[in-house]
């Protein structure tokens, strides 16, 4: 196995299940809402499985695989069926399509988990490579920078993100230095290695705001909670938006929804 990779031949189709993620459930309601509005604009029929909780990533990353598997098994039950599962967060999506099969390698129910993995999509990847959208008919007057979340590494999501954002009328996406560097979140890492995490966050923020953008964007609320929280603490003025929110607002601006 090499870098994070997305499973081949995932089901696409417009009838989908949405994994809204625990962070959106608890903190970022509007991000989940924007995801729904964007997908519905594209004609998707969205099911929001009621029993969903968390993808299991915190325990997985902490090395507590027994507890993580408990949560993943629950997730597999809740997301039964064969529809594509769409997740507005790179790391939660990667948890399902890469992390879960890894921690189930020696488990009898690996096939069940593999099946779950094989129909999971990160939102932007799904829009572009699942639904075949190559242009976004929105309008959004702003200069932005984008943090490439680490869990998008090796997947087609960054390319999908660029395709969508670059086609929005009025939107100016400024490149940043050292895109490959992590923001320092890393789940448990941010609290167990607070000093290193903080230094990493500081560096990332420097790069993100160097060109004085109006907005800093990302496609993962984990990263945003961490470096966004730091930016707020430092009193920085830049607004932070999930890419789904930009897509949604750009549609509103263009009068499409």
């Amino acid at each position: 196995m090499s870098l994070l990779h997305t499973p081949p031949n995932r089901p696409a189709g417009k009838s989908i299940q949405l994994m809204s993620t625990c962070l959106c459930d608890a903190f970022y309601a509007d991000v989940a809402q924007a995801t729904v509005e964007v997908l519905e604009f594209l004609g998707c029929d969205i099911e929001l499985p009621d029993g969903q909780t968390c993808c299991g990533q915190p325990a997985f990353n902490s090395g507590d695989w027994a507890n993580s598997r408990k949560v993943v098994r629950h997730t597999a039950k809740v997301f039964a069926g064969d529809k594509p599962i769409v997740v507005p967060s790179g790391s939660c999506a990667a948890m399902i399509f890469h992390g879960a099969p890894l921690e189930f390698e020696k488990e009898a129910d690996l096939p069940v988990i593999r099946a779950l993995a094989d129909r999971t999509w990160e939102l932007l990847d799904f829009i572009v490579h699942g639904l075949g959208v190559t242009e976004w008919p929105g309008k959004f007057d702003a200069k932005i920078t984008v943090h490439r979340s680490c869990h998008l590494r090796g997947t087609k999501s960054p390319e999908a993100m660029a395709t969508l954002l670059d086609s929005i009328e009025g939107l100016q996406v400024e490149p940043i230095d050292e895109t490959e560097q992590c923001c320092g979140f890393g789940g448990t890492f941010a609290v167990t290695f607070p000093n290193i995490s903080n230094s990493m966050g500081t560096l990332k923020i420097e790069k993100l705001i160097a060109c004085k953008p109006d907005i800093v964007a990302a496609a993962d609320m984990g990263c945003m909670m961490h470096f966004g929280g730091m930016m707020e603490k430092q009193g920085l003025p830049q607004k932070r938006m999930h890419v789904a929110q930009i897509l949604r607002d750009s549609l509103k601006n263009a009068g499409k929804i």
Binding site: N61, C182, F193
Partner: peptide, 8 residues
């Protein structure tokens, strides 16, 4: 443990 698992 000394990794944010960023994959770089």
């Amino acid at each position: 443990k000394a990794s944010s698992l960023c994959g770089a």
